[in-house]
Structures are given as structure tokens and as C-alpha cells.
């Protein structure tokens, strides 16, 4: 399959990954043949509307799919080794020591009845076999690292602000020195200033600790500030993949273009936010051909019948019939 970097071994390789949810006997494909690679220290944004499969992709990589989900195809390799992502028990040693997740701390991701220092220290004790004192010392270090005064460690989550809770989540994610951090909408519930601070903190820690970051968000502007690369997802597929600079300067997929145009940009003088017309796709009843064609301003006949495959295009990849000049005539194989 398409791989951006065949020359050197990637930290993480996702190859043709498909996940289905069972819903009252009906099977529903949440992500469909998703492929990408992640290098050590690289920051990738995974962007899409809700239901686009971005969260499912990330949870599949972390081996955190819900019980009614099933990996129906593809594989995930970590440092060249196959990850048993659909086996809960087998994934356990990998979790948090290699891949950790920063959930929306503003929500209920922290246990309300335990002090935050205990929650940060917990994986050190359970996963790294530290003593309680060592783990507490490590937790203090981590608090300092994310900019929380260590004496706040005895606080309970509800006693902290949303931004502070998000910092605690980050400190917790760093506890076992993982190589990959998945940020699941880590700044969504925060105000703009706190959001910027958290993104800055993530960026600083990333370069300091050589972390790879997968940032899930519906907000392209967040990605612009903190990622090297963006992957746009639509209806369970990656529709475009490229560097931040390239995608913002020259979006290829019409969906990407509309996403970028929907960002309010005070500098450009355009004050009106242009929402993308039409409804997000219904996974139960996926449109034929390119799933985006009902909302696409440039859809042509072929878009309604043929699924565009994700092809290399310039420095990145794109799945759109409008950008297939080189492979004219090749028909995407549809399962």
C-alpha cells in the first residue's frame, strides 16, 4: 500500500485498517482501509467531522476499541512488530508505556474520587513497578514539567480549572515515557487562551522528549498551530494527507478546501463563516462512489459511481477523481 517513507522504518505503520461496529445486528463500517505511517517525533493531525472515523482510527491504534467494535481488516505495526489491537489483554503491556492518550481532561477523564498525584503515579507503580515513593516523586516531576505547582498534587480533579485538568492529563500521559501520544480533542472544551497554552505545552514537550503526536480534532486551526502533517478524514476514509504548509496553501480535495474556508480568518477580512453545505454522511447509508459527492461543489459523473482511491500526489496523498490525471483509467477496487 501507499507508504510515505519506504526508505526508513517508521515508528508506527497502519496498513489497510478497517473497523466495524455491530449495531443491533447491523454491521457498520466506521473506518475503511486507513493507511498511514508515523515517524518518531512527528506530529500528525487527524481532522474530520464527528463520525468521520478519526476517533475510531486513534482508538484502534491504541487498542482501545469498544467491545462492539471489530477489526475487519488491516494491521498496525509498532517499531516493525505487529500490534494485537483487537486483543485487549495482549495490548495491555503496550498501553501507556508505548502509546498513551490525552483525553479531554475537562470532561470526566480523571477519576473524581482520587487525588491527581495518585492518578499520575498509578501507572508508574502498576506498569513500571516503581515503589509508591518513587512513583510519587516521578509524579511531582511530571507536574512540574507541565507547569503545575507540585503542592497542587493533593487536589482533586474538580478543584482544578479545565486547563489545569488538561495539564494533569498530559502529565499522566507522560508518566511511562511513551513514544506516541494520542491527543483526543485535547483542547476542545477549553477557551481560546488556555487552548493556545496547552498546544504550546504539547509542542514544547514533544520536541523535548521526541514524542510522536497524533492529534485528533475537528478544528483545522488547532492542527495548523501544532502539527507537521495533516490527514483529513471523511466518512471513514482518509481523503487527503499532506504537510500543514502544503494543505493550507494548496488544498487538493474539495472537502479540505471547504474545511479551510470554513475557518474564520480575521486577517483575510472575511468575517462570514461558511459552513459546508449538506449533512455529514450517514454511515448506515453511505453514498455511492465518493462519499463526499452529494456535498461536493465539483462532483462529476464518475464521483457518484466510483470510489476514488488514496493516491500519491505531489508530496502527499489525495483521494479524489479530480486529481487522478496520472492514473487515468485505473479503477479503484471496491470491496
Amino acid at each position: 500500500m501507499t507508504n510515505l517513507s519506504q526508505d526508513k522504518a517508521s515508528l508506527l505503520e497502519v496498513d489497510g485498517l478497517s473497523v466495524e461496529y455491530r449495531l443491533k445486528g447491523v454491521s457498520l463500517r466506521a473506518i475503511d482501509r486507513v493507511s498511514f505511517a508515523l515517524q518518531a517525533g512527528e506530529a500528525v493531525g487527524l481532522v474530520g467531522e464527528s463520525g468521520s472515523g478519526k476517533t475510531t482510527t486513534a482508538m484502534a491504534i491504541a487498542g482501545l476499541l469498544s467491545p462492539n467494535a471489530r477489526v475487519s481488516g488491516g494491521q498496525v505495526r509498532y517499531r516493525g512488530n505487529l500490534l494485537p489491537i483487537d486483543n485487549d489483554a495482549a495490548m495491555r503491556p503496550h498501553r501507556w508505556t508505548e502509546t498513551s492518550v490525552v483525553f479531554q481532561g475537562a470532561m470526566n477523564a480523571l477519576n473524581p474520587v482520587h487525588r491527581i498525584i495518585k492518578q499520575i503515579a498509578e501507572p508508574c507503580i502498576l506498569k513500571l513497578g516503581m515503589s509508591r515513593a518513587e512513583a510519587t516523586a516521578r509524579a511531582r516531576e511530571l507536574l512540574e514539567l507541565v507547569g503545575i505547582p507540585t503542592d497542587r498534587g493533593t487536589a482533586y480533579p474538580h478543584e482544578l480549572s479545565g486547563g489545569m485538568r488538561q495539564r494533569v492529563m498530559i502529565a499522566m500521559a507522560l508518566a511511562c515515557r511513551p513514544s506516541i501520544i494520542i491527543g483526543d480533542e485535547p483542547t476542545t472544551a477549553l477557551d481560546v487562551i488556555t487552548q493556545a497554552q496547552i498546544l504550546k505545552l504539547l509542542g514544547k514537550l514533544r520536541s523535548q522528549l521526541n514524542l510522536a503526536l497524533i492529534l485528533i480534532t475537528h478544528d483545522l486551526s488547532v492542527v495548523a498551530e501544532s502539527c507537521d502533517r495533516v490527514m483529513i478524514m471523511y466518512a471513514g476514509r482518509i481523503v487527503e494527507d499532506g504537510t500543514v504548509a502544503e494543505i493550507f496553501a494548496k488544498p487538493k480535495h474539495p472537502y479540505t478546501r471547504l474545511l479551510i474556508e470554513s475557518i474564520p480568518n480575521p486577517a483575510s477580512g472575511i468575517r462570514i463563516i461558511r459552513p459546508i453545505p449538506g449533512d455529514p454522511p450517514n454511515l448506515m447509508n453511505r453514498p455511492s462512489g465518493c462519499a463526499f459527492h452529494p456535498r461536493c461543489p465539483s462532483a462529476t459523473g464518475v464521483c457518484t459511481t466510483e470510489v476514488p482511491s488514496l493516491e500519491k500526489f505531489g508530496w502527499g496523498r489525495v483521494a479524489c477523481h479530480l486529481h487522478r490525471s496520472s492514473q487515468e483509467g485505473r479503477v479503484a477496487v471496491h470491496a
Partner: peptide, 17 residues
């Protein structure tokens, strides 16, 4: 179904833990 249970699972805790 609480979010902190997902966090606990992500931390690699066993079911018993």
C-alpha cells in the same frame, strides 16, 4: 461508561485493577 474508566483502560490496567 464513564470517561475515567476509558482512561484506566488506556493506562493498561487489568480488569481487576
Amino acid at each position: 461508561t464513564e470517561d475515567y474508566m476509558v482512561t484506566a483502560r488506556a493506562k493498561g490496567l487489568t480488569n481487576g485493577q
